[in-house]
């Protein structure tokens, strides 16, 4: 942990700020949310890493999908993700968002969340313990440090692809496209 490294703070304040101030939006889609209260309260205390829950997606930069994603909740996940300010990081919590988990053959569960929104990291397990959340956070730090937690840029670059996938499963979406035109792959490189 390099939170007290003043040199790094002076060199790249933005990156360091994003690392040590992760305001988390917990999306309580399923049973996974049961592991969140212990991790933010006395026993494990996520706040010592700067991770605190916030009320609206506008204030958040960490999106935690805790549990299986049904077709109905996918719409709200997409909406919330699009409303978050950039840079934003998504973490799938538990095995259900990864591949459907125990709902692998359910007709209305999303098996591949990363087809619809970009996901920066996964926490495997059913359930993952709170310690796993902290491991995920420290991994996320590393990714941010190396500039690899760039899901939001991928979303911008391949918006057409994501939007098509979303509309394929949800039908016509009520809200207009977030980015008006598909940014070329080369442009994406310069943004990143």
């Amino acid at each position: 942990m390099d939170r007290n490294n003043l040199g790094k703070w002076l060199k790249s304040p933005g990156k360091m700020g994003q690392k040590y101030s992760l305001h988390a939006l917990y999306f309580c889609t399923g049973c996974g949310i049961i592991e969140i209260p212990p991790s933010i309260t006395t026993r494990w205390d996520a706040e010592r890493f700067g991770v605190i829950p916030v009320a609206t997606p506008r204030q958040a930069n960490l999106f935690l999908i805790t549990g299986y994603v049904s077709v109905k909740t996918l719409r709200y996940i997409i909406r919330s993700y699009e409303q978050m300010p950039e840079p934003k990081f998504t973490v799938g919590f538990g095995s259900c968002p990864i591949n459907g988990g125990m709902y692998w053959d359910s007709y209305n569960t999303i098996k591949h969340l990363d087809k619809y929104i970009p996901v920066d990291g996964w926490i495997a397990g059913c359930m993952p313990r709170p310690e796993a959340v902290f491991v995920a956070v420290t991994h996320l730090w590393t990714l941010i440090d190396k500039g690899m937690a760039d899901g939001y840029n991928k979303y911008r670059a391949n918006y057409q692809y994501y939007r098509e996938n979303q509309e394929k499963i949800l039908g016509k979406l009520e809200w207009p496209p977030l980015f008006s035109k598909n940014i070329k792959h080369e442009e994406y490189r310069t943004i990143a």
Binding site: P13, G14, M16, G17, Q18, Y20, S21, H23, G50, N61
Partner: peptide, 8 residues
Amino acid sequence: IDIIKLFN
């Protein structure tokens, strides 16, 4: 730290 992040 929060303020620095928010400005970025």
